[in-house]
């Protein structure tokens, strides 16, 4: 009989947490509009390191990271709104032709509409549709109530639908 290393049954080490979640935190910061997503993610991990032994349980690291990334990005945007910072555009879609172009165009219009959402609505959309989090998890990340999450997400989807309709009407 083999025995798993004790660490495997206990709390993941900081290095393991970093390896598992760093790329996702960079992407989360980027999707929330951070101008330097890596800086946000690195700062979030540095803060996690300082608080590893104060987390309520083993599963709290990831929610904590998400909430810090949201906070840091929000703060950064709030204070340093250098207008219209360019965010990386998605690469051209695989394949080519008119359909691919229209899909890409729809992505572009949709992402542009996401960029124009108020901060809280944008957070709710990214956390819900990119990370597929529950309302409770989104509420924890955003530091609001689940009811507020529902409200932000609902308003965001309405606004995005309206923006897409206007884009379609313009074609």
């Amino acid at each position: 009989m083999t025995q798993a290393p004790s660490r495997a049954r206990g709390r993941p080490t900081f290095a393991e947490t970093f390896a598992a979640h760093y790329p996702a935190m960079v992407r989360l910061a980027g999707l929330l509009g951070a101008d330097d997503p890596e800086d946000i993610a690195q700062e979030a991990f540095a803060r996690l390191h300082a608080r590893m032994n104060r987390l309520r349980d083993d599963d709290a690291a990831l929610p904590y990271l998400r909430s810090i990334v949201c906070n840091l990005t929000r703060n950064r945007l709030r204070h340093l709104r250098l207008a219209r910072l360019r965010r990386p555009e998605p690469p051209p879609p695989a394949g080519s032709g008119e359909q691919a172009y229209l899909v890409a165009e729809r992505h572009r219009a949709l992402l542009a509409a996401v960029d124009r959402l108020p901060r809280r609505q944008r957070e709710a959309v990214v956390l819900r549709y990119w990370l597929d989090l529950s309302e409770r998890e989104i509420a924890d990340a955003m530091g609001v109530t689940p009811g507020a999450v529902k409200s932000h997400a609902s308003r965001a989807v309405t606004a995005l639908g309206r923006a897409l309709k206007e884009t379609d009407d313009d074609r």
């Binding site: 790329p23 960079v26 992407r27 980027g30 999707l31 997503p37 965010r87 990386p88 555009e89 998605p90 690469p91 879609p93 729809r106 992505h107 949709l110 992402l111 996401v114 959309v125 990214v126 549709y129 990119w130 995005l160 897409l164």
Partner: peptide, 13 residues
């Protein structure tokens, strides 16, 4: 569409 668009953008970081 939202999931696909966010996924596409996320993959660029």
């Amino acid at each position: 569409d939202l999931r696909a668009a966010l996924d596409a953008r996320a993959s660029t970081y």
